[in-house]
Amino acid sequence: MSIIETRDLSFVYGIDTPFEKRAVNNVNIKIEQGEFIGIMGHTGSGKSTFVQMLNGLIKPTSGQVLLNGKDIWENPKEIRKVRFQVGMVFQYPEYQLFEETVYKDISFGPKNMGLTDSEIDKRVRDAARFVDLSGELLFKSPFDLSGGEKRRAAIAGVLAMDPDVLILDEPTAGLDPMGRDILLSQICQYHKQRKNTVLLVSHSMEDIARVSDKIMVMNKSNLEMFDKTKNVFSQNKHLEEIGLRVPQITKIMASLNEKGYDFSEGILTVEQAFAEILTKLNKEGKLW
């Protein structure tokens, strides 16, 4: 059974007003336990709206979201439980910090779950360790942290709930390249250890290519593609038509192939390309 399944999921903003906008249109998708899914699409394509429906923050205009085979809106009173199972990190999550100390802020989620104090303490420290917030930072005011540290504190606030499904909406937006790489690898690390399901919304093809097993592409409120990362990124033309592109390195390798080389298809990261070229040169004996 898929951990998350959507059936004809649609959402319309401002229904019955002149500003009516169909943000998500009939999306059918199945996500399996343990998968790392990248979500991409041009701005305004409905990615954020889609993911907010997955943990019941907004109620679908029509269609269903099934979590472990059960409609999450079956019993609206139980919707909070769904939110503990499906954790959501918003775009610019640092604006949700409010407590006196980082420690207290991270413990907000676990506290709402009604855990015991010792369990809360354990979870807060685990979550803080994942995002690399060291001991003394935990007892500072969240408003005294740097932008990147705030971001990590906010993400820890969701990790501390230890959700089965973790959704991150552009977690690396506005960070420096170094900070982006670090955050991304922390998320990967977390995914590997906990073996949970992760959905990552991102505008960076490089990031998505590096980490995800499958990619979901949204275009003008519709689901355009949902396939293995390699398969999606082999459709260069199609992606460019809908305002996206493949990672630069994939493009370079593809054009090298056009020029007559025969590197393997679907190279997604610089490391892969490096290894590939190295083997090729080695084989041809041109390396040393």
Binding site: L57, G87, Y95, G109
Partner: peptide
């Protein structure tokens, strides 16, 4: 809009 966003974010952390 901002209130809406923050409310959503805190609800996602189980705020009731």
């Amino acid at each position: 809009e901002e209130t809406d966003k923050i409310m959503q974010a805190q609800k996602a952390r189980g705020a009731d």
